[in-house]
Design a protein around this nucleic acid. Structure first.
Length: 691
DNA sequence: ATCGCTTAG
DNA sequence: GTCCACTAAGCGATT
């Protein structure tokens, strides 16, 4: 029987008008969208998944999700008792493909020789079209024959990669068969590089993430243990660890098959548990409309990479090396002793024990703190402090940025590019994170650091476009807390920090000083972070009492804020989580902790998460729209990076103006709030000037 | 592995 | 009495 999977495919984002029109509001969230639009979807998926004796819908996920034991096993054999075949002929492969068309599901896991999707080599593919149906297709394992050794008789036949891909492409691109993976963004890229555009997809990592983003690990091994009560074969037991670690293509095929085949099997079974749970928890909106469509969007961004000019980085590294050496000598002679400048422990002893500088505070481990905010006031006491701080900043720039980034450049005929990895399941608020390398913390605040951005460039005849949301989290605070005075300020497009200062300090705008504006800006940030007098005092260097007065004045002027914060905390205490405007849940494990410090921390998180999380939802909605909108407009502009409230694009020079207009429009309309969303956009030859 | 520090939004 | 402003990742030193 062929199952209809209409509801599980949302491969193509809706037109912009439709999406914005459908944006949930506080009222519609609990009603129309989640209960009507997705009702059909949910029941159909459950019907499919529960057909043939699968598990009943488990209880809703929540705080104690981990403690609810694995669901009752269904009528299938335990994974550990399954024998998974190695596929060595096309006929056997065709059977799996036919099964997939029959069941409407195909779990996939690609095995490669590295974790870097834009360059990794495909070594094998694991498939499972039904429970107990796991199988491994070895493609590029190194065997005796390849090593020109005599024993080629022992070799296991490997099907040619292009032949296997050709056979799989129809099912991988068929809209009626749901492809299921774990961290599927990775596999999507591998297959995209082989000219297969896999769709539609479900991702068990993202299901787990949407259900509870506060979980420490969304790894397949962890989830299999939690939900399937199955202990997976450890990757390290297959490839070894440390210096002796080998790549997956060096692993003997029978060993590899034992490890790999259970990945697709476990992923398929995990899907049968998590998808119904998503539905029972009414979390389909965030998953179906935000996370799932992003898999291919972010996958494509990672494949795109960004052009980086190695010569700029090399020159900066050399410059830094010379200056670091000079500074090191100066610090040693000023301190009167030679020590490792990079060791906070040694530095603390030199500054506070030997030189007797004042004001040092010891941390819980008994060591002196030498953090920049501690040392800065001391630079007037002793010359060595300023030198040391300069050494620190250059050392950071060199080791983390100018040196390391050079090693991340992937060379190609058209020039070198860097491909970051965006994690879609790393934060408790819905933000992405970036690693290997992290391109979300490239310096900008100091002039020296900012120069690093001149190495991020556009190729010939292209420009980089940087588009960022202006004050998005404060706008959301104004909207979500319903602060009329703040909303008016945003509607009138006036300088928000100056307007805040005017209100809080009761001074007309035309008498505003830069110091007052600076303090008001700090308070505005404090609001977003779940303000405390202690934290604000430390941040803007005033007494605790003075900070408290500022906060009281702020809450007095923006009276709606107090109620919003109290309501948010109360919601968190009642449910154990807070929600974004789009219904994403952010769990707050410490909200009822008996330790007041822990509780206070959780309360500040509870205030911050709806703001940070809604901003994350909004930029994700824009990201889903943009590639299609650009293509529909006949533009070749490509999206490269996301930095929380900023998107970076690469555009042919002659279409940049058109692209900018479109980008600005799509981003601004990604949510409709009671305040406008403003987007600043610039184009230039490098990221430094485009910002 | 963890700490201490620094980078970003 | 808390010793905290929110969210991340990476490097070098230390355990």
């Amino acid at each position: 029987m062929k199952l209809v999977t209409l509801d599980t495919e949302t491969p193509v984002p809706e037109p912009l008008e439709q999406l914005t029109a459908q944006q949930p509001t506080a009222e519609t969230l609990g009603g129309f969208l989640r209960d009507q639009n997705f009702k059909t979807l949910t029941t159909r998926v459950v019907d499919q998944l529960t057909e043939g004796g699968a598990t009943a819908i488990p209880p809703a996920a929540g705080q104690d999700q981990a403690s609810t034991s694995a669901p009752k096993a269904d009528s299938f054999k335990a994974i550990a008792d399954c024998e998974f075949p190695i596929i060595t002929d096309m006929a056997a492969l065709e059977v799996i493909v036919a099964d997939a068309f029959e069941t409407g599901f195909l779990a996939i896991d690609t095995e490669t020789n590295s974790l870097h999707a834009p360059t990794a080599k495909l070594v094998g593919i694991c498939l499972a079209a039904k429970p107990e149906g796991g199988a491994y297709i070895p493609l590029a394992h190194v065997q005796a024959q390849d090593l020109l050794e005599a024993k080629e008789g022992d070799d296991i036949k490997q099907l040619p990669t292009d032949q296997v891909i050709e056979a799989l492409k129809p099912v991988l691109e068929d809209p009626s068969v749901l492809k299921i993976g774990h961290n599927f963004k990775y596999d999507w890229q591998l297959l995209k590089r082989l000219d297969v555009d896999v769709t539609p997809v479900d991702d068990t990592m993202l299901l787990s993430y949407v259900l509870d983003g506060s979980q420490h690990s969304h790894g397949l091994d962890n989830l299999a243990l939690m939900y399937l009560n199955h202990e997976m074969v450890k990757y390290e037991s297959v490839v070894g660890k440390g210096k002796k670690q080998i790549t997956f293509d060096q692993v003997e095929i029978p060993t590899a098959a034992k490890y790999a085949a259970e990945d697709a099997e476990a992923t398929l079974r995990l899907h049968r548990v998590l998808k119904p749970r998503l539905i029972a928890d009414k979390m389909t909106y965030v998953y179906e409309r935000i996370e799932r469509p992003l898999v291919s969007v972010i996958g494509q961004m990672e494949l795109n990479g960004i052009a980086v000019d190695a010569t700029v980085l090399r020159a900066m590294s050399e410059d830094f090396a010379k200056r670091l050496q000079v500074l090191e000598g100066e610090v040693h002679s000023l301190a009167g002793t030679e020590f490792n400048l990079g060791s906070p422990k040694q530095l603390g002893e030199v500054l506070f024990d030997n030189l007797g500088l004042p004001g040092g505070k010891k941390s819980k481990t008994g060591a002196w703190s030498t953090a920049a905010d501690v040392l800065e006031p001391l630079s007037e006491e002793h010359e060595v402090v300023a030198k040391l701080l300069e050494w620190r900043s250059l050392s950071k720039l060199k080791s983390t940025y100018t040196d390391s980034l050079q090693n991340d450049i992937v060379s190609s005929p058209t020039g070198g590019r860097v491909h970051t990895s965006f994690s879609m399941a790393a934060t408790n608020t819905g933000r992405l994170s970036s690693s290997d390398p992290n391109l979300q913390n490239i310096p900008i605040r100091t002039e020296e650091g900012r120069k690093i951005r001149t190495a991020f460039v556009a190729p010939k005849d292209h420009v980089l476009i940087a588009a960022d949301y202006s004050q998005i989290e404060l706008r959301l605070a104004a909207d979500m807390a319903g602060i009329d005075a703040l909303k008016d300020a945003f509607k009138n497009g006036i300088d928000i920090h100056a307007a805040t200062a005017s209100q809080v300090f009761d001074i007309p705008l035309d008498e505003m000083t830069s110091e007052m504006r600076r303090r008001a800006k700090a308070i505005n940030f404090g609001i977003i972070y779940g303000i405390s007098a202690f934290g604000l005092a430390k941040q803007i260097q005033v007494s605790n009492g003075e900070a408290k007065d500022y906060i009281d004045a702020y809450l007095g002027r923006f009276s709606e804020l107090t109620e919003f914060m109290e309501n948010t905390k109360e919601f968190a205490r009642e449910h154990g989580y807070v929600e974004t405007l789009f219904g994403r849940r952010c769990y707050m494990p410490g909200i009822k902790d008996k330790n007041p410090a822990m509780r206070g921390f959780a309360e500040r998180q509870a205030i911050n998460a709806p703001l940070q999380g809604t901003a994350a939802d909004i930029i994700k909605r824009a990201m889903i729209q943009l590639p299609g909108a650009l293509a529909d407009a006949g533009l070749k502009t490509r999206m490269l990076l996301q930095v929380h409230d900023e998107l970076v694009f690469e555009a042919p020079k002659d279409e940049a103006e058109k692209a900018i207009e479109l980008i600005k429009r799509v981003m601004a309309k990604a949510a409709s709030l009671s305040v406008p969303l403003e987007v600043d956009v610039n184009q230039a030859d490098s990221w430094a000037e485009a910002h």
